Amino acid sequence: MGWLSWIVLGLISGLIAKFLVPGPDGGGLIWTTVIGIVGAFIGGFIGTRIGWGSANALDARSIGIAVLGAVIFLVVWRIAR
């Protein structure tokens, strides 16, 4: 998956995660994309360990895994802050 695909996956999953976990998050499009990209790494790591696969394409399964990771990242980020 190329870097442009990672950015698109990050933007989509970051938007969905911020919708699912509402809160006083600032930032804009870049921060949302970073949340999604980090979420894709977290979700891919967890998904690989439990046998779901990883976020390695721009399809529904990868977006779901990335959203799960982004939600986990947002919750941990808010607890840490």
Results as ranks from 00 to 15, higher is better:
I7G: 14
L20Q: 12
V38R: 00
V8F: 14
G43T: 02
G43N: 02
T33C: 14
I12F: 11
K18F: 02
G26L: 08
L15Y: 09
G28A: 07
W31C: 00
I37A: 10
G28Q: 03
W6G: 14
W31V: 06
G36N: 06
G39T: 05
I35R: 00
A40D: 03
G10I: 12
T32S: 10
V34L: 14
G10N: 12
S13C: 08
V8M: 14
L11C: 06
L15E: 10
L11D: 03
I42T: 04
G14S: 10
P24I: 05
L15G: 12
V34K: 05
V38H: 01
I30D: 01
D25L: 03
F41C: 05
S13D: 06
I35E: 00
W6L: 12
S13F: 07
W31K: 06
L20S: 09
V34D: 00
G23P: 02
A40H: 04
L15K: 11
V21W: 10
G28F: 07
I35K: 00
L9T: 14
I16L: 15
A40I: 07
A40Q: 03
T33S: 14
G27E: 06
I12H: 13
F19D: 06
G28H: 04
I30H: 01
I42V: 15
I37N: 02
L20C: 12
D25S: 05
G10R: 12
G23F: 00
G43H: 01
W6A: 15
I42K: 00
G36P: 07
A17G: 11
V21F: 12
I35M: 01
T32R: 08
I35Y: 01
P24S: 10
A40G: 15
I7R: 11
S13W: 05
F41L: 13
L15F: 08
T33I: 09
D25Y: 08
W31F: 08
V38I: 15
L20V: 06
A40C: 08
L29C: 07
S13Q: 08
G14L: 09
P22G: 07
A40T: 09
L9W: 12
P24Y: 05
L29Q: 03
L9D: 12
A17V: 09
